[in-house]
Protein backbone atom coordinates (compact mmCIF):
# COMPACT_ATOMS: atom_id res chain seq x y z
CA UNK A 1 0.00 0.00 0.00
CA UNK A 2 2.88 2.35 0.75
CA UNK A 3 4.01 1.82 -2.81
CA UNK A 4 0.92 3.70 -3.98
CA UNK A 5 2.11 6.82 -2.18
CA UNK A 6 5.62 6.46 -3.53
CA UNK A 7 4.29 6.32 -7.08
CA UNK A 8 1.88 9.19 -6.42
CA UNK A 9 4.67 11.26 -4.95
CA UNK A 10 6.90 10.67 -7.93
CA UNK A 11 4.09 11.45 -10.37
CA UNK A 12 3.49 14.71 -8.55
CA UNK A 13 7.19 15.50 -8.62
CA UNK A 14 7.32 14.90 -12.35
CA UNK A 15 4.36 17.21 -12.90
CA UNK A 16 5.64 20.10 -10.81
CA UNK A 17 9.05 19.89 -12.46
CA UNK A 18 7.42 20.22 -15.86
CA UNK A 19 7.81 23.67 -17.35
CA UNK A 20 4.63 23.29 -19.36
CA UNK A 21 2.63 23.07 -16.17
CA UNK A 22 4.15 26.26 -14.82
CA UNK A 23 3.46 28.10 -18.05
CA UNK A 24 -0.16 27.01 -17.99
CA UNK A 25 -0.68 28.01 -14.39
CA UNK A 26 1.11 31.29 -14.93
CA UNK A 27 -1.04 31.91 -17.97
CA UNK A 28 -4.20 31.18 -15.98
CA UNK A 29 -3.18 33.51 -13.18
CA UNK A 30 -2.34 36.30 -15.63
CA UNK A 31 -5.71 35.82 -17.32
CA UNK A 32 -7.51 36.02 -14.01
CA UNK A 33 -5.49 39.08 -12.99
CA UNK A 34 -6.13 40.75 -16.31
CA UNK A 35 -9.81 40.73 -15.48
CA UNK A 36 -8.98 43.41 -12.93
CA UNK A 37 -9.05 45.76 -15.89
CA UNK A 38 -12.82 45.38 -15.92
CA UNK A 39 -12.96 46.48 -12.33
CA UNK A 40 -13.31 50.11 -13.28
CA UNK A 41 -16.86 49.55 -14.52
CA UNK A 42 -19.62 49.42 -11.93
CA UNK A 43 -18.58 47.07 -9.18
CA UNK A 44 -21.51 44.71 -9.42
CA UNK A 45 -21.21 44.29 -13.17
CA UNK A 46 -17.46 43.88 -13.19
CA UNK A 47 -17.58 41.34 -10.42
CA UNK A 48 -19.92 39.12 -12.37
CA UNK A 49 -17.67 39.32 -15.39
CA UNK A 50 -14.61 38.57 -13.29
CA UNK A 51 -16.24 35.58 -11.59
CA UNK A 52 -17.57 34.14 -14.81
CA UNK A 53 -14.31 34.71 -16.63
CA UNK A 54 -12.20 33.41 -13.74
CA UNK A 55 -14.20 30.22 -13.37
CA UNK A 56 -13.99 29.61 -17.09
CA UNK A 57 -10.21 30.06 -17.08
CA UNK A 58 -9.78 27.70 -14.13
CA UNK A 59 -11.93 25.08 -15.79
CA UNK A 60 -10.20 25.40 -19.15
CA UNK A 61 -6.68 25.30 -17.77
CA UNK A 62 -7.57 22.46 -15.40
CA UNK A 63 -8.98 20.42 -18.26
CA UNK A 64 -5.94 21.10 -20.41
CA UNK A 65 -3.63 20.00 -17.60
CA UNK A 66 -5.73 16.89 -16.89
CA UNK A 67 -5.72 15.80 -20.51
CA UNK A 68 -2.14 16.69 -21.35
CA UNK A 69 -0.56 15.21 -18.25
CA UNK A 70 -3.06 12.34 -18.25
CA UNK A 71 -2.34 11.22 -21.79
CA UNK A 72 1.26 10.26 -21.03
CA UNK A 73 0.56 9.08 -17.52
CA UNK A 74 1.10 5.37 -18.10
CA UNK A 75 2.28 5.41 -21.70
CA UNK A 76 5.44 7.33 -20.91
CA UNK A 77 6.52 4.86 -18.26
CA UNK A 78 6.25 2.02 -20.74
CA UNK A 79 7.73 3.95 -23.64
CA UNK A 80 10.73 5.11 -21.63
CA UNK A 81 11.24 1.68 -20.05
CA UNK A 82 10.85 2.94 -16.50
CA UNK A 83 8.32 0.17 -15.90
CA UNK A 84 11.24 -2.25 -15.89
CA UNK A 85 12.61 -0.56 -12.83
CA UNK A 86 9.29 -0.17 -11.13
CA UNK A 87 8.05 -3.71 -11.62
CA UNK A 88 11.29 -5.38 -10.70
CA UNK A 89 10.33 -4.15 -7.24
CA UNK A 90 7.63 -5.71 -5.09
CA UNK A 91 4.79 -3.54 -6.33
CA UNK A 92 1.51 -4.74 -7.80
CA UNK A 93 0.17 -3.36 -11.00
CA UNK A 94 -2.98 -1.94 -9.45
CA UNK A 95 -0.88 -0.09 -6.89
CA UNK A 96 0.98 1.57 -9.71
CA UNK A 97 -2.21 2.65 -11.48
CA UNK A 98 -3.70 4.05 -8.27
CA UNK A 99 -0.47 5.87 -7.53
CA UNK A 100 -0.35 7.43 -10.97
CA UNK A 101 -3.96 8.57 -10.63
CA UNK A 102 -3.54 9.99 -7.16
CA UNK A 103 -0.34 11.79 -8.14
CA UNK A 104 -2.05 13.64 -10.95
CA UNK A 105 -5.20 14.24 -8.90
CA UNK A 106 -3.05 15.85 -6.23
CA UNK A 107 -1.22 17.95 -8.81
CA UNK A 108 -4.55 19.29 -10.00
CA UNK A 109 -5.71 19.89 -6.48
CA UNK A 110 -2.73 22.13 -5.82
CA UNK A 111 -3.15 23.95 -9.11
CA UNK A 112 -6.87 24.43 -8.69
CA UNK A 113 -6.41 25.75 -5.19
CA UNK A 114 -3.72 28.15 -6.41
CA UNK A 115 -5.87 29.48 -9.23
CA UNK A 116 -8.97 29.53 -7.04
CA UNK A 117 -7.32 31.49 -4.24
CA UNK A 118 -6.22 34.16 -6.68
CA UNK A 119 -9.72 34.45 -8.09
CA UNK A 120 -11.25 34.63 -4.62
CA UNK A 121 -8.81 37.32 -3.53
CA UNK A 122 -9.59 39.44 -6.56
CA UNK A 123 -13.33 39.13 -6.08
CA UNK A 124 -13.00 39.86 -2.39
CA UNK A 125 -10.82 42.86 -3.11
CA UNK A 126 -13.34 44.40 -5.47
CA UNK A 127 -16.33 43.73 -3.30
CA UNK A 128 -14.54 45.18 -0.31
CA UNK A 129 -13.12 48.21 -2.09
CA UNK A 130 -16.51 49.81 -2.57
CA UNK A 131 -17.86 49.41 0.90
CA UNK A 132 -14.68 49.82 2.85
CA UNK A 133 -15.28 46.71 4.97
CA UNK A 134 -14.56 43.08 4.17
CA UNK A 135 -17.53 41.74 2.23
CA UNK A 136 -18.34 38.05 1.98
CA UNK A 137 -21.85 38.75 0.78
CA UNK A 138 -22.34 41.06 -2.13
CA UNK A 139 -25.12 41.69 -4.63
CA UNK A 140 -27.23 38.91 -3.21
CA UNK A 141 -24.55 36.20 -3.53
CA UNK A 142 -22.23 34.73 -0.93
CA UNK A 143 -18.62 34.39 -1.97
CA UNK A 144 -18.77 30.78 -0.76
CA UNK A 145 -20.78 29.98 -3.90
CA UNK A 146 -17.60 30.66 -5.84
CA UNK A 147 -15.76 28.06 -3.78
CA UNK A 148 -18.49 25.55 -4.49
CA UNK A 149 -18.19 26.20 -8.22
CA UNK A 150 -14.42 25.71 -8.09
CA UNK A 151 -14.92 22.49 -6.15
CA UNK A 152 -17.31 21.24 -8.83
CA UNK A 153 -14.74 22.06 -11.48
CA UNK A 154 -12.19 20.00 -9.58
CA UNK A 155 -14.58 17.06 -9.51
CA UNK A 156 -14.76 17.28 -13.27
CA UNK A 157 -10.95 17.18 -13.49
CA UNK A 158 -10.97 14.01 -11.41
CA UNK A 159 -13.27 12.32 -13.92
CA UNK A 160 -11.28 13.56 -16.90
CA UNK A 161 -8.01 12.26 -15.44
CA UNK A 162 -9.77 8.92 -15.01
CA UNK A 163 -10.82 8.88 -18.65
CA UNK A 164 -7.31 9.79 -19.80
CA UNK A 165 -5.85 7.12 -17.54
CA UNK A 166 -8.01 4.39 -19.09
CA UNK A 167 -6.79 5.24 -22.58
CA UNK A 168 -3.24 5.87 -21.46
CA UNK A 169 -3.14 2.30 -20.13
CA UNK A 170 -3.32 0.83 -23.61
CA UNK A 171 -2.74 3.39 -26.30
CA UNK A 172 -0.51 6.25 -27.41
CA UNK A 173 -0.76 9.80 -26.10
CA UNK A 174 -2.21 11.09 -29.36
CA UNK A 175 -4.96 8.48 -29.37
CA UNK A 176 -5.59 9.14 -25.69
CA UNK A 177 -5.89 12.83 -26.43
CA UNK A 178 -8.40 12.23 -29.21
CA UNK A 179 -10.49 9.70 -27.29
CA UNK A 180 -10.51 11.80 -24.15
CA UNK A 181 -11.48 14.99 -25.94
CA UNK A 182 -14.18 13.08 -27.81
CA UNK A 183 -15.67 11.71 -24.59
CA UNK A 184 -15.28 15.11 -22.98
CA UNK A 185 -17.27 16.74 -25.77
CA UNK A 186 -20.02 14.16 -25.54
CA UNK A 187 -20.02 14.47 -21.76
CA UNK A 188 -20.35 18.24 -21.92
CA UNK A 189 -23.26 18.07 -24.37
CA UNK A 190 -24.90 14.89 -23.24
CA UNK A 191 -28.30 16.46 -22.48
CA UNK A 192 -28.23 18.23 -25.86
CA UNK A 193 -27.57 14.92 -27.53
CA UNK A 194 -30.50 13.43 -25.73
CA UNK A 195 -32.75 16.31 -26.70
CA UNK A 196 -31.64 16.01 -30.27
CA UNK A 197 -32.45 12.28 -30.24
CA UNK A 198 -35.91 12.96 -28.90
CA UNK A 199 -36.48 15.39 -31.75
CA UNK A 200 -35.42 12.89 -34.37
CA UNK A 201 -38.00 10.38 -33.11
CA UNK A 202 -36.08 7.46 -34.49
CA UNK A 203 -35.98 4.50 -32.05
CA UNK A 204 -32.42 3.55 -33.02
CA UNK A 205 -31.09 7.05 -32.54
CA UNK A 206 -32.97 7.36 -29.27
CA UNK A 207 -31.59 4.05 -28.08
CA UNK A 208 -28.02 4.99 -28.91
CA UNK A 209 -28.34 8.39 -27.28
CA UNK A 210 -29.78 6.76 -24.21
CA UNK A 211 -26.75 4.49 -23.96
CA UNK A 212 -24.41 7.44 -24.44
CA UNK A 213 -26.33 9.36 -21.82
CA UNK A 214 -26.04 6.54 -19.32
CA UNK A 215 -22.50 5.36 -20.00
CA UNK A 216 -20.57 8.54 -20.64
CA UNK A 217 -20.23 10.78 -17.62
CA UNK A 218 -22.54 13.73 -17.76
CA UNK A 219 -20.05 16.51 -17.27
CA UNK A 220 -22.75 19.18 -17.26
CA UNK A 221 -23.43 18.16 -13.70
CA UNK A 222 -20.14 19.78 -12.74
CA UNK A 223 -21.02 23.17 -14.13
CA UNK A 224 -22.61 25.43 -11.52
CA UNK A 225 -20.98 28.57 -12.83
CA UNK A 226 -24.21 30.45 -13.46
CA UNK A 227 -25.41 29.68 -9.92
CA UNK A 228 -22.17 31.00 -8.49
CA UNK A 229 -22.17 34.11 -10.64
CA UNK A 230 -25.79 35.08 -11.07
CA UNK A 231 -27.30 33.55 -7.97
CA UNK A 232 -28.93 30.20 -7.51
CA UNK A 233 -28.98 27.44 -5.01
CA UNK A 234 -26.10 25.01 -4.83
CA UNK A 235 -27.42 22.98 -1.91
CA UNK A 236 -25.37 20.67 0.27
CA UNK A 237 -27.50 17.88 -1.12
CA UNK A 238 -26.40 18.75 -4.66
CA UNK A 239 -22.80 18.90 -3.52
CA UNK A 240 -23.14 15.51 -1.92
CA UNK A 241 -24.78 13.89 -4.94
CA UNK A 242 -22.34 15.40 -7.40
CA UNK A 243 -19.43 14.24 -5.27
CA UNK A 244 -20.81 10.72 -5.14
CA UNK A 245 -21.39 10.84 -8.90
CA UNK A 246 -17.78 11.84 -9.52
CA UNK A 247 -16.42 9.28 -7.08
CA UNK A 248 -18.40 6.42 -8.59
CA UNK A 249 -17.39 7.36 -12.11
CA UNK A 250 -13.76 7.69 -11.12
CA UNK A 251 -13.93 4.37 -9.34
CA UNK A 252 -15.28 2.63 -12.44
CA UNK A 253 -12.63 4.27 -14.61
CA UNK A 254 -9.89 3.17 -12.22
CA UNK A 255 -11.16 -0.41 -12.22
CA UNK A 256 -11.17 -0.32 -16.01
CA UNK A 257 -7.60 1.01 -16.14
CA UNK A 258 -6.43 -1.63 -13.71
CA UNK A 259 -8.07 -4.44 -15.69
CA UNK A 260 -6.43 -3.21 -18.88
CA UNK A 261 -3.04 -2.66 -17.28
CA UNK A 262 -3.06 -5.95 -15.40
CA UNK A 263 -2.32 -7.97 -18.52
CA UNK A 264 -0.33 -5.38 -20.37
CA UNK A 265 2.95 -6.70 -21.79
CA UNK A 266 6.03 -4.53 -21.35
CA UNK A 267 7.78 -5.55 -24.55
Amino acid sequence: MKAIWSVAHNTFKEAIRDRVLYSLILFAILMILSSLLFASISAQQSNKIIKDFGLTVISLIGIIISVFLGMGLVYKEIDKNTVYNIFSKPIRRYEFILGKYLGLAFTLLINTVAMGVILLLIVLYIETKHSGIIQFYYGGIYISELIKAIYFEYLEFLVIIGIALVFSSFTTPVMTLLFTLFLFAIGRFSSDIRLFAEEVKNPVVEYISEIIYRVIPNLEKFDVRSEAVYGGDVSWMLIFYTTVYAVIYTFVLLILSILIFQNREFK
Binding site: K2, N10, E14, D18, N81, N85
Partner: peptide, 26 residues
Protein backbone atom coordinates in the same frame (compact mmCIF):
# COMPACT_ATOMS: atom_id res chain seq x y z
CA UNK B 1 17.45 -6.06 -11.57
CA UNK B 2 19.40 -3.89 -13.95
CA UNK B 3 17.49 -3.41 -17.20
CA UNK B 4 19.27 -3.21 -20.53
CA UNK B 5 20.08 0.40 -21.48
CA UNK B 6 18.70 1.79 -18.26
CA UNK B 7 16.66 4.91 -18.60
CA UNK B 8 15.27 6.70 -15.60
CA UNK B 9 13.11 9.63 -14.72
CA UNK B 10 15.28 12.42 -16.04
CA UNK B 11 13.79 15.00 -13.70
CA UNK B 12 15.05 13.14 -10.62
CA UNK B 13 18.50 13.43 -9.14
CA UNK B 14 20.53 10.29 -8.60
CA UNK B 15 19.73 10.41 -4.93
CA UNK B 16 15.99 10.88 -5.53
CA UNK B 17 15.89 7.97 -7.94
CA UNK B 18 17.50 5.66 -5.41
CA UNK B 19 15.15 6.96 -2.78
CA UNK B 20 12.11 6.17 -4.92
CA UNK B 21 13.40 2.71 -5.78
CA UNK B 22 14.15 2.09 -2.10
CA UNK B 23 10.66 3.14 -1.09
CA UNK B 24 9.19 0.61 -3.49
CA UNK B 25 11.09 -1.98 -1.47
CA UNK B 26 9.51 -0.64 1.68
Amino acid sequence: YLPENPFFYDYLTGEELLHYMGELHG
